[in-house]
Nucleic acid binder design. Structure first.
Lengths: 346, 346
DNA sequence: GTTAGCACTCGATATGATTTAGTGCTAACA
DNA sequence: TGTTAGCACTAAATCATATCGAGTGCTAAC
């Protein structure tokens, strides 16, 4: 598959792709002949281009048009980019995330900044807490027949659930239950709560065994709810900047993807799985992407880690001819900032 | 302004508008001549149409085209619709909202159902709790230097805030503060917490007066956070069904309105203000709408009331030639259902 | 007051000519 | 042998032109 390209072909291919990224128009031999420092005539370029086409890197939309990159061509280009990224970050453009108290707001901001800086559509998932430990549980009376369970998990994420009880529960019982819960469950993750633990607690609870069931269910629900991470998006309309995505069919598909967010989840999980590739950044070109009907797009994702097992994914979606270099740089920089702020925050 | 139209003109105008709502194409005199039961020739219709045009109800996009309604024409049509709506709801199509525990999910569902049933873009705001009473406050120790305040307000909405303290707070103090807070603040709305109340509490708190300040601030913040209602949207891509909104400019404007949601807030507040018009439903046609750059759209809003001062707004946005009748019916029906479910829920 | 008829308007569609950007191939050249 | 100039060829894009069709306004007749 991966033939080795002569130095010259290499340069020409790169020039073609770069030019196409800029303009979105098929590139002709003359253009390349003038753009590169190879000092070759358009005729020679033409010969090389014919070769490159045969190898599958570029293609002619129709006779008498210039060439445009195929997915294989893009892949070549992106792989090279990723290869060469030896932490040459720190470039220009200060990107500023303002520190704000709520994590969610910060994430929304990141999405916005990302979309604005790249001019593509951006998304970010709120962190998922895999295996997060229960830190603290508190039951409180709300009403005669309602008890509220508050669960704090590692990372100071607070969740609550209201439990409706059949019988009235008095304060004393509540106090007992509180102690029972905290001694038995603190420090455990969801997976670690075994049936044994539950049985043990029920035994200890005596006449309130029934209530224990309800409470545990509520706790489990509350913690699990966190796993249902939120996804924030920004700049969906950026796709209108790129004519190749602006036709009705593509636009509808893309924008409803952004509105529904279900498909975005599949990006997130895929990104989390393939996880720690080089620099944590992954690029899906055309059909490689987790989408149906989105063969005209590329997706770039990266994973961020706020510590404490709080990991999430950011992604941008744009045309295949996106400015991969800028996107990757901007992402790294932004995530670095995000992670720093998060660290300071605790 | 509001001339009285002859019966015939009235019928013709209505026929023109209805036809245009269907087709989106300018309607000619022949069409009307055949469609109505007036048994008039196209020539006669033409004369009447010329009159109606002069009165400002319809307009010709260019010579030798049929007529399309002006905003004034739409207004005439909608006003008549609203006038005639004597609770003739209960028509066909069962709309089903599934009951789910979280209010937010239900609202999302309402938006979705509304969008699907009307084929326009739909939005719904989560209820705002004006003057909601504090029902219950609970402080709990999370960490050595962190206290969590949980506030339950009427309607069982639960909010929490983490407070960082300078000094370590022991359990006893917390207990005292809990009692202090609940005896002083329960049953009050945000507005009712006077400086006097605060001073009084500080006095009672003695050496923990400083902490009281922090806690109250947290409580106020927590409650206020609720006032920042969420807005859920669905079906933004429906606008692509209507060519007159599908051009790049309009589409970008509309879709980013739906993504940003800030402009939607202005609809919500406007709808809440103008509140209880006939049937609670309001129609903004073209320039009447709270938007800039949206003179090609109509907005229909309605206010729902889940009781306990929990009020919110639903809205749909579509082309001016929307099926106002269906939209209004669907909305009423849906909201009635929503309100019923909410009432059962408590 | 209604209607038939007709000249007229103007957008939409189709047609064809022209231009333009590019190619592939061949033959000459260093 | 690799490079280049030159040329015939292709297909899209652009533009002007003709044609069609839906609809109007006006006039004259009923």
């Amino acid at each position: 598959m991966a033939e080795i390209l002569s130095d010259r072909k290499h340069k020409i291919l790169k020039a073609i792709i770069q030019n196409y990224l800029d303009t979105g128009e098929p590139v002709g031999s003359r253009t390349i002949s003038k753009d590169t420092d190879l000092n070759l005539s358009s005729a020679t370029i033409r010969n090389e281009m014919a070769d490159l086409e045969e190898m599958g890197y570029i293609i002619q939309p129709h006779t008498s048009a210039g060439r445009i990159p195929t997915d294989k061509g893009y892949r070549f280009y992106v792989d090279e980019l990723i290869e060469g990224r030896e932490e040459e970050i720190g470039g220009p453009a200060e990107i500023v995330i303002q520190k704000q108290d709520k994590i969610d707001r910060m994430l929304k901001q990141v999405a916005k900044v990302l979309a604005n800086n790249t001019n593509y559509a951006a998304m970010i998932s709120s962190p998922v807490f895999h295996r997060s430990k229960i830190k603290f549980i508190q039951l409180s009376q709300v009403d005669k027949f309602q008890v509220m369970a508050i669960v704090v998990v590692e990372g100071n994420i607070i969740k609550n659930k209201v439990i409706s009880t059949d019988e009235e529960v008095d304060g004393e019982t509540l106090l007992k239950l509180n102690v029972l819960l905290n001694t038995n469950l603190n420090g455990l993750t969801l997976d670690e709560i075994s049936l044994g633990t539950v049985a043990q607690m029920k035994a200890q609870a005596g006449e309130y065994a029934l209530l224990v069931d309800d409470v545990i269910e509520a706790v489990v629900n509350a913690v699990q709810e966190d796993e249902e991470y939120e996804i924030y998006t920004s700049g969906a309309t950026n796709i209108f900047r790129y004519p190749e995505l602006s036709d009705q069919k593509n636009a509808t598909a893309l924008i409803s993807t952004f509105e529904e967010k279900n498909q975005l989840r599949s990006i997130v999980s895929r990104s989390m799985e393939n996880g720690n590739e080089k620099n944590g950044i992954q690029v899906y070109i055309g059909d490689e992407s987790p989408f149906q009907n989105m063969k005209d797009c590329s997706v770039v994702t990266a994973t961020y880690d706020l510590g404490n097992d709080m990991k999430g994914t950011v992604g941008i979606i744009g045309p295949k001819r996106m400015d991969y270099e800028n996107v990757m740089k901007t992402m790294s920089k932004l995530l670095k900032q995000l992670e720093q702020i998060a660290k300071k925050d605790r």
